[in-house]
C-alpha cells in the first residue's frame, strides 16, 4: 500500500475558519485511491521527526502566530532543508504570512517571518472579508479556486515568488494588485479558507501528485475520482458569490 506522510504544523494553534477541512479532504482523497495518508500533529515542543512528503499550516490569531513563530525558529534550518528537498507545503492565511520574510503590524511593530516565501505582509486597519474567486493558471490550463478570505494583513510578493492566481472576486493578497496567494517551488500560500480544498478538489490532487511522484517515481499518476458533488458545490458557490455581488447595495437591516 502506498503511503504519504503529512506534518500538520501547530494544529492546536493554527486552525481558523475550518482549515482542518483541508486535512480531511487530503486524507479521504488518498484513501479513495488506496493510498494511506499518515498525519502527524507537530506543535510546540514536538520534534519534526520523520520523512514528510507534505506539510500543512492553517490560519491563526495574532497571539498564536507569535507563539508559533518563536517555536519554529529551532526547526527552521531543518524545515528549509525539507523544502529544498521537494516537500509540498500548503499554508493558509496566518500560516501563509508566517512563511514570508516579515510581518509589519499596523502599529509598525516588526515580526520576523520564516523566510521560506519571498513575501512581506503589512497589517491594515480594515479587514478584508468575503467570498473569493481566483483564476489560477498552472501547467498551462486555467482553472478556478473558490473560498472565503478574512485577513487584515496586506501581502506583497517579492521577485522570488509568483502569485498563485489572479482575483476574479474578492481582495486577495492586498486588495490592490489583483493577485492572490504565492508559489515558490512546491510551497503554496493562500488567503483562502472555505475550507479551501473541499470545493477545489483539483487543487488537492495538484498538491498530492508531486508528493507521490517524488516518492514513487515520475510515472505515478493519480486515478481520477468522481468529483460531481465537489464540482457542483464550486459552481453553486460561484453562482452565490455573483448573486451577493449584484445585491451589495441592499442595506444590512433589510437583509436579515
Amino acid at each position: 500500500m502506498k503511503t504519504l506522510r503529512l506534518a500538520h504544523l501547530y494544529p492546536d494553534l493554527m486552525n481558523l475558519y475550518g482549515d482542518r477541512g483541508n486535512i480531511i479532504v487530503l486524507r479521504r482523497r488518498c484513501a479513495w485511491r488506496g493510498i494511506e495518508l499518515v498525519v502527524d500533529d507537530v506543535s510546540i515542543g514536538d520534534d519534526l521527526a520523520g520523512d514528510y512528503d507534505l506539510a500543512f499550516i492553517g490560519g491563526g490569531q495574532d497571539r498564536e502566530q507569535l507563539l508559533v513563530c518563536r517555536d519554529f525558529q529551532r526547526r527552521l534550518d531543518q524545515f528549509k532543508g525539507m523544502v529544498d528537498g521537494g516537500l509540498v507545503v500548503l499554508a493558509i492565511c496566518g500560516g501563509y504570512q508566517l512563511l514570508g520574510r516579515r510581518f509589519l503590524t499596523y502599529q509598525n511593530e516588526e515580526l520576523p517571518g520564516l523566510g521560506i516565501l519571498d513575501i512581506e505582509t503589512v497589517g491594515g486597519q480594515k479587514r478584508l472579508i468575503g467570498n473569493v474567486v481566483v483564476k489560477v493558471k498552472l501547467d498551462g490550463s486555467e482553472r478556478l479556486l473558490v473560498g472565503f478570505e478574512n485577513h487584515s494583513g496586506r501581502t506583497i510578493l517579492g521577485p522570488g515568488a509568483r502569485p498563485l492566481g489572479t482575483i476574479e472576486r474578492g481582495f486577495g493578497n492586498n486588495g490592490r494588485d489583483g493577485t492572490e496567494g504565492a508559489r515558490q517551488a512546491n510551497v503554496f500560500g493562500t488567503y483562502l479558507h472555505g475550507s479551501l480544498l473541499p470545493k477545489n478538489p483539483w487543487f488537492a490532487d495538484y498538491l498530492l501528485e508531486p508528493a507521490l511522484k517524488r516518492k514513487y517515481g515520475d510515472d505515478f499518476s493519480l486515478e481520477p475520482l468522481d468529483d460531481g458533488l465537489e464540482d457542483a458545490a464550486r459552481t453553486a458557490a460561484i453562482r452565490r458569490i455573483e448573486e451577493i455581488h449584484r445585491r451589495r447595495w441592499v442595506p444590512g437591516w433589510f437583509k436579515r
Binding site: 486552525n15 475558519y17 475550518g18 482549515d19 482542518r20 477541512g21 480531511i24 472579508i129 468575503g130 467570498n131 472565503f148 478574512n150 479558507h193 472555505g194 475550507s195 473541499p198 452565490r240 451577493i244 444590512g252 437583509k255 436579515r256
Partner: peptide, 15 residues
C-alpha cells in the same frame, strides 16, 4: 444558509 444573520462564511461546517 449564508445570509448575513447566519454568517456569510460557511467554513465553520468543517470545524
Amino acid at each position: 444558509n449564508d445570509n448575513l444573520a447566519d454568517g456569510t462564511d460557511v467554513s465553520w461546517l468543517w470545524d
